[in-house]
Nucleic acid binder design. Structure first.
Length: 766
DNA sequence: GAGTTTGAAACT
DNA sequence: CAGTTTCAAACTC
């Protein structure tokens, strides 16, 4: 209304319109923006606000929370006024970040409703820019939020009104078809809320949305969909068997594979239990019934979690969400705590960690490296497990899962492995361009396990499994400080941990979350992956960069003085990345790349390809490029996009993995967790860590190098800061700085912005 | 397994 | 922001 805010918004919007980006978007859109003030706003927020957490830092919670917040937001009557006024205008100052997150969430939710009939392939439109995508999606989100198209004027409507207005505004840009679509979605969602059953319709809608996404995103969404499906099915799965959806590389953006699988699942389900459930077009209700709970709710939670967080991570942030969402949902919910997980673990000790976070699941048996095989095999039983894991950490009721009763240890193993694999693959994860703890990733490799011949290997192996799961040995920090690897990785401590007075457990979720928040407030990137893997796209970086598609660097750089960056004391080395300009190390001899740029002899020998990389490193120029790379990686490089496919991911990890990797614990963090990612995401990957046999590792690495290495390792040596660091200072500057500051560097990099989002999201909550 | 070294994280 | 302390992993024996 008259509030100052409005004015502000308008101004910003006008600016936005003038921006090149805006123009670009407009050019893309069939419809010309009439005056899309609000739209611009939306874009703005989207672009900078809370993009999908690339880092997948644990923060994802933000997303989940955002969801809640959002709802509140909507409920806020005041807002309705704004929107009502202009019809188009949306006053979403606050909500921008949240909204974005929500978009994702919604999409995930939609997936729940996935319509088998609809094929992803349908969605072909891929906006080059994410912004555009957001713009497109926005309507959808709005719809969701609005609830019913007919929105009530009631207080609850406040939000609805806004939505509608936004929608209208958006519609302008969108083609008529799109509008139609939106309406459908709208209705579908409405239905969903009403019945909570109509998944299919929603899904179909979601598919559409997906279409708009950039290729990368699309993939991610697919993955989400799959996951969601899995989850959804998993619940029902307990009832029957479900085929595991393969997220593998095979899946491609245009493919309709997913639907097929889904169908299969349904069929299976039908077989098992109620025919109606699965096969019928309206399985929704039945399914829900069977599941006994709000599968939808669960799936939602799951979907949310999927975003970027890893299972364990999820625990952190999602747990709360789950509770909220799931409520008691009986069995499932309880499992969250991980106790259930523990049970599972007990069932099969090989699994190390089945911990609450589900991440534990990622700990795979060493031998399982075969996870791929396992995938193929994927037993139905495993599904359950998978679901959990896949769900991204959502600890979906692992316990709930059926496997308890039926699954044999083997099955569990397989399932776990699979799950882990899946997780790794999780498209969502791809968001995490940044790979932390890359070395750990190597664990994925099966070969490693086999190879471990030396005693050391054994040792590592032993550790490895546990490590894979991430164990800590904290005595004084209560596992509530970054000293704790588990905590830093955004995962709960699990059985293998030897920590004392550990508070990093689901039981103390509140404490953990609050602590995390504090730490994040201090350093928003605290939970971001330390090692960022980035692939450069030719675009931004110069030719060189293009040649060396990917690079990985420690976000802050190390400060080694005595280890010469040749020991795991060095975070760079530990992460399997070369030192960069950001490093303040003395006497750097990092085998993965020296600060000064000199290439490590060893590595060079191993990987020819790396030569290029190093050169880049030295140049140091690439720092900037790195960031870009990061973004691009996922999106552009198929290979680099490792995250997308499990295999790829594993490979990437391997590549990154330091030679010593065998033992190295995997950096849990990796992805960031999910939302924070990284690890969070990484967590998924983390499981592979388990395997990591070091000795072999080298060999593997070498071999791999030829193929994949280049991307990852090679990376130019740009300072990995993908995140942001002042060139000299190690410390990561806070997100805000990232976003706004140093335009020069960042200006070019889209990636940066994306990556940032995850963290910011957290803040909003508080 | 105990003790030492190391460097990040936390604190001042 | 720099210096110091605390901490837990990495390493050594």
């Amino acid at each position: 209304m008259d509030t100052p805010e409005k004015t502000q918004i308008t101004t910003s919007l006008s600016k936005f319109e003038d921006s090149p980006i805006f123009n670009y978007i407009n050019s893309l859109s069939p419809i010309k923006p009439v005056k899309s003030v609000h739209i611009t706003q939306a874009l703005h927020s989207l672009s900078f606000g809370s993009l999908p957490s690339i880092f997948t830092s644990p923060h994802l919670s933000s997303n989940k929370e955002s969801r809640f917040l959002r709802r509140h937001h909507y409920s806020d009557p005041s807002k309705s006024e704004f929107s009502s006024e202009n019809g188009n205008k949306v006053s979403r100052d606050e909500g921008t970040a949240l909204d974005v997150a929500q978009l994702y969430d919604n999409s995930a939710e939609l997936q729940e409703n996935f319509n088998p009939g609809a094929s992803i392939g349908e969605v072909s439109v891929e906006p080059p820019t994410e912004d555009l995508r957001f713009a497109v999606e926005l309507p959808r989100r709005l719809n969701y939020g609005c609830g019913s198209p007919e929105y009530d004027p009631t207080p609850r409507c406040g939000p609805q009104i806004d939505c509608s207005s936004e929608l209208a505004g958006i519609s302008r840009k969108c083609s008529p078809e799109r509008e139609m679509h939106l309406q459908r979605v709208y209705q579908a969602e409405q239905k969903k809320e009403a019945t909570d059953c109509d998944w299919e319709s929603l899904i179909s809608d979601s598919n559409d949305l997906l279409i708009f996404n950039s290729p990368t995103d699309t993939e991610a969404f697919k993955g989400l969909m799959q996951k969601s499906l899995d989850l959804g099915t998993s619940f029902s799965a307990s009832l029957g068997e479900v085929h595991k959806v393969q997220i593998g590389p095979s899946t491609q953006p245009g493919e309709t594979i997913v639907p097929k699988e889904i169908n299969q699942k349904r069929d299976n389900l039908a077989d098992n239990g109620n025919p109606n459930e699965c096969t019928t077009s309206n399985p929704n209700e039945d399914v829900d019934n069977e599941v006994g709970m709000s599968a939808g709710a669960v799936s939602k939670a799951v979907s949310i979690l999927h975003r970027g967080i890893r299972r364990r991570c999820l625990d952190f942030e999602t747990a709360a969400a789950r509770r909220k969402n799931l409520g008691d949902s009986s069995n499932l919910t309880t499992s969250v705590g991980g106790q259930s997980d523990e049970k599972i673990a007990s069932i099969d000790k090989r699994f190390v960690p089945f911990k609450p976070g589900s991440d534990s699941s990622r700990c795979v048996l060493p031998g399982i490296g075969l996870h791929l095989n396992a995938l193929a095999i994927t037993s139905k039983d495993s599904k359950n497990v998978k679901h959990e894991t896949l769900s991204s950490g959502i600890s979906v009721p692992s316990t709930v899962a059926p496997f308890p009763s039926q699954n044999s240890g083997q099955e569990l193993n397989e399932s776990l492995s699979l799950a882990s694999t899946d997780i790794d693959i999780d498209p969502t994860e791809n968001e995490a361009p940044f790979v932390e703890d890359v070395p750990q990733a190597s664990a994925c490799l099966v070969t490693e396990e086999f190879n471990h011949s030396s005693a050391k290997k054994k040792r590592r192996k032993l550790e490895g499994e546990s490590e894979a799961c991430k164990r800590c040995n904290c005595k004084k920090s209560k596992c509530l400080k970054l000293y704790c690897e588990c905590f830093a990785a955004g995962v709960y401590c699990i059985e293998p941990c030897s920590c004392q007075e550990c508070f990093n457990k689901p039981i103390h979720e509140d404490t953990v979350l609050s602590t995390r928040k504090q730490i994040e407030s201090r350093n928003p990137l605290a939970f971001a992956p330390k090692v960022i893997r980035s692939s450069e796209t030719a675009t931004e970086v110069g030719d060189e960069s293009s040649k060396t598609p990917a690079s990985a660097r420690h976000k802050r750089g190390c400060n080694c003085k005595k280890s010469s960056c040749l020991k795991k004391y060095c975070e760079c080395y530990q992460g399997g990345v070369g030192c960069s300009i950001n490093c303040r190390c003395e006497g750097c001899k990092n085998a993965f790349g020296r600060k000064d740029g000199s290439a490590p002899a060893e590595i060079e020998a191993e990987a020819e390809t790396e030569d290029e990389t190093e050169g880049h490193e030295k140049s140091g120029v690439d720092k900037i490029s790195q960031k870009t790379e990061i973004q691009n990686n996922e999106e552009q490089n198929p290979n680099s996009a490792l995250p997308m496919t499990p295999l790829a991911f594993c490979r990437a990890r391997q590549l990154l993995q330091p030679p010593f990797s065998s033992k190295s614990k995997p950096p849990r963090s990796f992805l960031s967790i999910g939302s924070s990612s990284g690890l969070y995401t990484s967590q998924k990957y983390g499981k592979p860590n388990i395997l990591r046999p070091q000795p072999k590792f080298e060999t593997q690495v070498q071999t791999i190098h030829d193929d994949d290495m280049p991307e990852i390792l090679r990376g130019n040596y740009s300072p990995s800061n993908g995140i942001k660091t002042s060139p000299n200072s190690k410390r990561v500057s806070p997100p805000h700085s990232i976003l706004g500051s140093s335009p020069a560097q960042r200006s070019g990099r889209k990636l940066i912005l994306q990556s940032i989002p995850s963290f910011p999201s957290l803040t909003p909550q508080h």
